[in-house]
Design a protein around this nucleic acid. Structure first.
Lengths: 207, 207, 207, 207
DNA sequence: GGGTAATCGAGACGGTACGTCTTGTCTTAGG
DNA sequence: CCTAAGACAAGACGTACCGTCTCGATTACCC
């Protein structure tokens, strides 16, 4: 006697968006750990069952809410200069991570992903990958314009760029700042080996 | 009539270590968020009051437990070839993170640090910084041997090297593997800009 | 814009009888209080709205179901000996109350009557009174044959006879048995006052 | 791993009596079916768990509350005239059953006993039997004074007396009134058979 | 015999209460 | 006094039903 999954066609869009909005608001106001499904439901004017029908856990609601809040807005700029475009985009990621709006919620989602398998799956799928793909598309463009070596693995390049940001974010070592971003991009493009080779244009590795 | 603080002289060492051990086990098994004081007490064969008497919060118990468990940082190898030394060290970090024992524990700490300020402070101080310093010492040695540019910020270099590993670890995008490690080190040293002339030694950027 | 009442002509007979059958089954199996409209609907393979369209409450469904199920009252036997006829009839009532089928159903109705005004009205009217009347007719016959005092209130006599059975049935003190029935009838006819001279026919008040 | 039953020695008397009082009040005010454990707990200023710890169900709380409310007060009067003493006691039972204070709650408990095995056991044990025993003691006294035949089964006599009251109470046929009580007692003592024997003192079987 | 209106099965919806679990405080008994 | 054990008030958990509502998809009546 298998439990039928609910029929998405009958789903109420009004309820869905009210829930996501309520989830984000409450998460922001009292922190993720003190966010309860009861409160999300009350805040959205919705029965608890409506949440349990469509999401498996509090975390799942919050990831989805977070994803909608960040927006699909992450399309990369393309000014022709890949280094500057990356820095600009990384600065906006940094602002989002550090800002009071989404930062704390994003932290909480990362925390939840460490023990909740459902979120461990949703976080990369829903939030990380689409933005990684956007970054890879920009890098691919740069490669075709000769700003990037032909043979690099773009997945690793993305990790080289954003990994340092997340390193600070999750390990609480330093705040992410423009200086870190500048150096990360410049080091990654120019390399750490003593310059036996010409980097071409911008060897400005100081400060 | 002020509440007298408990007298440390009368404290039961047996209870203390049973609590720390139980906290660690449960944190590892079900994640930090699902770790409850009730369960720690039950697992330690101890009354809840004994925990509340000596620690202010669940987080405080867990940091103390972790601090005792992880032990001190190991020194970097120095074979003369900084790239290979880094790869070796990163592989051993990768093995630890991926292993079932320390990996799960470390996930729990990272998760806890995202919401508990006590752990947010203890994690970089006690755990991360000593290891970063060891790495920086090795890099400094490399710099003096001419394997590293003079002007780079070593903190950022450490983040460039380990950030990609943590990126995979906390965001659950891919498993950390040797290939990633190889590429990270090589890209970071050689740079991503197209090589106008070969760096001489190891241009082996394929595979 | 008044809500049109449903049109009885279009009513599905299949649904109606499936609902009544399901209501009776569930009422019998888990008791009236734990009978839910949800379960009746599911058991009948019917939408909940179909029940709410035609009945105002759970109680209404159950009375209607019971009314169809119990059938009409049977006539009393008349062997000429009113005591024996009463005992015989009371034994058959006792068997019905004690039996798993009607007993459980009847328990459910009695329970329902204590809280649902609809059933509180229907139970005496539809179920009790016809049977009381049959009993009273037999007692009237006995009176005319000189087996019963002229001046007794037959309603009270019926209660004297059947009250003890229901006392055991609803209060769960003892099981109804032949011994109780025999004694009830004999005590009622012979009286409890010490016999100053024997009644002639059946003074057999022992065992 | 057997669940330890709670230790009665540690039980809070304050909580216990607040719960029973709250249960009775709410039961009276909104009816048994609409009485919820949630409301009882709130009304008593008590956690729900404290109710669930000591009672298995809502019904059990209400039976106990009812029992305390009725009071042990049921000792029988002994004026020397057993008929009058019985009538007096039956009138007070009738007043309790019919009264707005306990009548509705008692109905609900009887209803619950029809489907809840726990209440089916508690109702006779806790409430009925102590009062039946008191009645039997009075009847035994009457027997020793020669007001009652030697050979009657007192359990059946009690049922003969109270059965008719409960018959009206649970089947909703008539209201219990003084006339019924008078007739029940008189019929039971004098017997229904035409008077071939002298009843001694009071053959007043009219009206 | 085709249009249309109401019933049907199904089930999502906003709610209330359920019975369980955990929290942090308070109380009891024993060493 | 400190310990373990655990009752306590509070309140969130995830589930079950409530009674209402909205869906297509059959009916069954009326033109």
């Amino acid at each position: 006697m298998p439990r039928n999954p609910p029929d998405p066609a009958r789903r109420s869009e009004r309820a869905r968006s009210a829930i996501l909005e309520s989830a984000l608001t409450i998460s922001r106001e009292r922190g993720y750990e003190k966010t309860t499904i009861e409160a999300i439901a009350a805040g959205a004017g919705v029965g608890k069952q409506t949440i349990y029908r469509w999401w498996p856990s509090k975390g799942a609601v919050v990831v989805e809410a977070l994803n909608e809040a960040i927006g699909s807005a992450s399309e990369f700029p393309d000014s022709g200069d890949v280094r500057e475009d990356l820095k600009a985009q990384m600065r906006s990621v940094s602002a989002a991570l550090g800002g009071p709006e989404l930062g704390a919620t994003f932290r909480a989602v990362i925390a939840a992903a460490q023990s909740d398998p459902l979120i461990a799956e949703a976080l990369p799928t829903l939030i990380i990958e689409p933005r990684v793909e956007a970054c890879k598309r920009r890098l691919e463009g740069a490669r075709q314009q000769g700003q990037l070596r032909e043979d690099v693995d773009l997945d690793v390049v993305v990790e080289l760029l954003y990994g340092p940001l997340y390193h600070r974010f999750v390990l609480h070592t330093f705040d992410i700042d423009d200086l870190q971003i500048t150096r990360v991009v410049d080091y990654v493009f120019s390399g750490l080996s003593p310059m036996e080779h010409v980097t071409g244009d911008r060897g400005e590795l100081r400060q």
